[in-house]
């Protein structure tokens, strides 16, 4: 069945690929490009002619609203909201190097408030649809348990905070019938046989699966990668 999908953070490689996959599969796809990335807009226009791409400034909620209003006008509802936010500081090294705290704040605002505003703005449209799904394109290094890195504070703190945001939304919205996908992607995936590519993971209705184990997944928030491995928080 054709889905109405909005992909926010379309300049990130995994989001770009998803837009192309969804488009090829015949879904009606809209793209939100953040970070003033004109090349992405051009690439989407070239490769996916029917995809409407919006330039979104996460600092300016009116740009998010504009995209939501457009989709409401055209489609009346939204089925799936896919989010991606991967901004990093230009120089964010090890502890002790003395960080640029203002830049960390800006990056956190861009990543975390950007996703927060987008979910809040699109919730009414998602409520009007039947699928009611929120997906986040994540990275395994957002796991506080697993992370082995020593640099990129703004980026890591943003992703960990977004995991918490999704958990709170899960608690609030799952009783309304919302479902969530928190998918970790990796550049290393290229050329490998993936057990669960992002497109499949995000579209699949686990609550329809014959196996209880899969169905039960809808009732907790999990973070999984393309090999369907569960990643701890």
């Amino acid at each position: 069945m054709t889905k109405i999908i909005f992909v926010y953070g379309a300049e990130n490689p995994a989001a770009r690929k998803l837009i192309e996959d969804f488009y090829r599969d015949g879904h009606r796809v809209y793209a939100g490009v953040t970070g003033n990335n004109k090349e992405t807009i051009e690439a989407i226009r070239k490769n996916c002619q029917d995809v409407t791409a919006f330039m979104i400034n996460p600092a300016d909620i009116s740009s998010v609203k504009k995209a939501a209003d457009y989709i409401r006008e055209k489609e009346g509802h939204l089925d799936i909201l896919v989010l991606s936010s991967e901004k990093r500081c230009t120089d964010d090294g090890e502890i002790g190097k003395i960080h640029d705290y203002e830049e960390i704040m800006k990056v956190y605002d861009f990543n975390v408030n950007g996703v927060f505003k987008t979910i809040q703005t699109f919730l009414p449209l998602l409520r009007l649809g039947n699928t009611k799904r929120i997906a986040f394109l994540n990275r395994a290094e957002s796991s506080i348990n697993w992370c082995l890195n020593t640099v990129n504070y703004a980026y890591h703190m943003s992703l960990a905070s977004i995991n918490m945001m999704l958990k709170i939304y899960f608690n609030a919205l799952r009783p309304e019938g919302f479902t969530f996908r928190n998918y970790c992607w990796d550049e290393d995936e290229n050329g490998k046989r993936l057990i669960m590519p992002a497109r499949d993971y995000i579209l699949r209705d686990f609550y329809n699966e014959p196996h209880e184990a899969f169905r039960s997944e809808e009732n907790r928030l999990v973070m999984r990668d393309s090999f369907h491995r569960e990643i701890p928080w």
Binding site: I95, Y108, S142, I144, C147, N149, T150, V151, N152, Y153, H156, M157, S158, L159, A160, S161, N163, M164
Partner: peptide
């Protein structure tokens, strides 16, 4: 959560 992550780094 951000604090816990910063402490991890």
């Amino acid at each position: 959560t951000a604090l816990n992550m910063a402490v991890r780094l």
